[in-house]
Amino acid sequence: MEIWLKNGTDAIQLPILPSTFTVSVENSHQTVNVQTKGDVTILGKTGLKTVELTSFFPGQDYSFAAYAKDRDPYDYIDKILSWQEKAVRITITDTNINLQTTIQSFSYGEPDISGDVEFTLSMQEYRKPTYTKPPKDKKNNNNSGGGKKDDKNNKKPGKDNKSKSKNYTVKKGDTLWAIAKKYYGAGSKYTKIYNANKSVIEKAAKKHGKKSSTNKGVKGWWIFPGTKLVIPK
């Protein structure tokens, strides 16, 4: 068995197979109560599949690895982090799993001094949305009265219609991942907050004795209480 993650022509094979992996899918069936029949089920559409697996990236050679150690564990980490806002295909050979997915969550850390980096990766099936343009309303396009067009339809949006960004002050224990999770529902969007506040974050990091906010290839790793961030829409 092999497990591959691919983004276009870029791909990595997981060097250590997980002891187990989980695939789940929910359906949108509904149960309603009919007065003369009691509870009945209304069939719904199939939901998106999710795949979750836990393993580690080796810091040394292991005889049970899929291939010899050829890179630092954090090279894998950086690669997966760079794919968090992209579609990623997961393929598990010898199974029926070959899905285009998005990364829903990705956590990692070092449990001991071996240099191994443990991780948990959760992925959700990606279905690309399709759009249909609505037909033009001919009645609204005809100016049958011969007069001026309705000014209400020609008003430019005012300031009240513009999306407004929010402000957030960093508290002790905060991470950009957690803040993104709070405001966007997805920690993987932390780069959006970092890019909007790059100068502020880097300035705070240097003020606290850091060369930059980057740690182990992750920008915005170091953030400090009292730093005021703009949370873009």
Rank of each mutant, 00 (worst) to 15 (best):
T46Y: 14
Q35D: 13
K86L: 12
L48G: 03
S19F: 09
Y62N: 03
F64M: 00
Y62T: 01
D72Y: 10
F21G: 10
Y74V: 00
A65P: 09
D75A: 12
W83C: 07
I42G: 06
D61C: 01
N27T: 15
L81F: 08
G47T: 10
T93V: 03
Y67S: 03
I42M: 11
T91Y: 09
A66D: 06
Q35H: 11
D70T: 08
Q35Y: 07
N33M: 03
S28G: 00
V51R: 03
P73L: 13
P58M: 07
F64D: 01
V23K: 15
F57E: 11
S24Q: 13
G59A: 03
Y76F: 15
L48A: 14
S24V: 06
L14F: 08
T22Q: 12
I77N: 08
E52N: 07
R71C: 13
Q60C: 00
S19T: 12
F56Y: 13
T50W: 05
K49V: 01
W83A: 07
N27D: 15
A66N: 13
K49D: 10
K37H: 12
K37I: 13
L43F: 04
T41A: 05
V88Q: 04
F64E: 01
E85R: 15
N33T: 12
Y74I: 03
Q84L: 09
D39S: 07
A87Q: 12
Y67D: 04
V23I: 14
V32E: 07
V40Q: 09
K45A: 14
I90Y: 06
R89W: 02
F57V: 06
Y76M: 09
L53A: 04
T36D: 14
L43R: 10
R71A: 14
K79H: 08
N27Q: 13
Y62L: 08
K79S: 11
G59K: 02
T54Q: 15
L48I: 00
K86M: 10
P73G: 10
I16P: 03
I80D: 00
S63G: 15
N33E: 14
S82D: 13
L81R: 14
L81T: 04
E52W: 00
S82I: 01
T36G: 07
D70G: 11
S28P: 00
S82H: 04
N96F: 14
L14G: 10
P58L: 05
T22C: 04
I16K: 07
Q60P: 00
G47E: 09
I16N: 03
F21P: 09
T93L: 10
I42A: 07
G47Y: 09
Q60I: 02
A87N: 12
T91I: 05
Y62M: 03
L81H: 11
T54N: 15
N96W: 10
Y67W: 07
